[in-house]
Simulated scan of single mutants.
Amino acid sequence: MGTWGYGIFDDDTASDIKGDFDEYIKEGLSVTEATESILEEYQEIIEEDEEDGPTVYLALASLQMTHGQLQADIKEIALEIIESGKGFEIWEESGENELDERKKVLNQLKLQLLRQ
């Protein structure tokens, strides 16, 4: 995973997911259909990559909120990821400051999710 910032979409995987999701929406798919397509396309990453797997759900939760259609299962998984610290390993390796900044971003996402 290549990261260049602390934001939800500031890494290669999340950026790719956003691009794919936006393309599905432009093609006329619903948010639910776009989500299903992303989950299918990124299934291997979800199952096998401890760093990027959580990113898929965090990105989907943010994208669904942007479209005003947050699905309960995506919300629940994203909140569990934030609470458990899944995917933090790369941030821990980057240093305490980087980890703290990422935690701030995820806390903001958590607050947004809880308001939905």
Rank of each mutant, 00 (worst) to 15 (best):
E93D: 12
H67P: 11
I82K: 05
L109P: 04
I74W: 13
E44F: 13
A61F: 07
A59M: 09
M65A: 05
L99P: 04
E51T: 03
G68I: 09
S62G: 09
E93I: 07
I74Q: 09
S62Q: 14
F9Q: 00
E80K: 15
Q116F: 14
N97V: 12
S15G: 01
M65G: 10
R115M: 02
W91D: 10
E23W: 09
K26Y: 04
Q43W: 10
I82C: 07
T66N: 15
V105T: 13
L29F: 13
E80H: 15
K104I: 02
Y6M: 08
D16A: 15
T32L: 09
E76W: 05
I81F: 07
T35H: 04
K104L: 08
L39E: 12
E76T: 09
L58N: 05
A78Y: 02
E33D: 11
T66L: 15
E40M: 03
Y57H: 13
E89L: 12
L113V: 01
V105L: 03
L29G: 07
G5P: 08
D22G: 06
E51A: 03
V31F: 06
K110A: 04
E80N: 15
Q69P: 06
L114G: 00
I17R: 01
E33I: 01
S15Y: 11
G53K: 01
S62R: 14
S30M: 00
L39F: 10
K26M: 13
S37R: 12
I25N: 05
I90V: 13
E41G: 03
A78R: 05
S84I: 01
G7L: 01
E92Q: 14
A72S: 15
G95N: 13
A59Q: 03
D52W: 02
W4R: 08
V31H: 04
A61E: 06
I45S: 05
S84D: 13
Q108R: 12
G7S: 04
K103Q: 09
E92Y: 06
K18G: 03
K110Q: 10
Q116W: 14
G95R: 10
Q64T: 14
Y57C: 09
Q69A: 13
E41C: 08
P54H: 07
L58G: 01
I45W: 01
V31E: 05
G68P: 11
A34D: 02
G95M: 07
Q112W: 09
T35S: 02
D52M: 08
G28Q: 09
Y42I: 01
Q71K: 15
W4Q: 01
T32Q: 06
I8Q: 01
L106I: 00
S37Q: 13
K18P: 00
N107D: 13
D10I: 02
L114I: 02
K110G: 01
H67V: 08
D12M: 14
Q108G: 06
Y6L: 00
L111E: 13
G5E: 03
L63Y: 07
S37K: 14
E92D: 08
G68F: 11
T66Y: 15
D12F: 15
E98W: 14
L29R: 14
G87M: 05
I17A: 03
Q43P: 00
E98G: 11
K104R: 11
L106P: 05
A14N: 05
I25D: 06
D11Q: 07
G53W: 02
V105F: 04
Q64C: 12
I38S: 06
T66G: 15
E83R: 10
L99D: 05
V31P: 05
E92A: 11
V105E: 12
A14V: 00
M65C: 11
M65F: 10
E92G: 09
W91P: 06
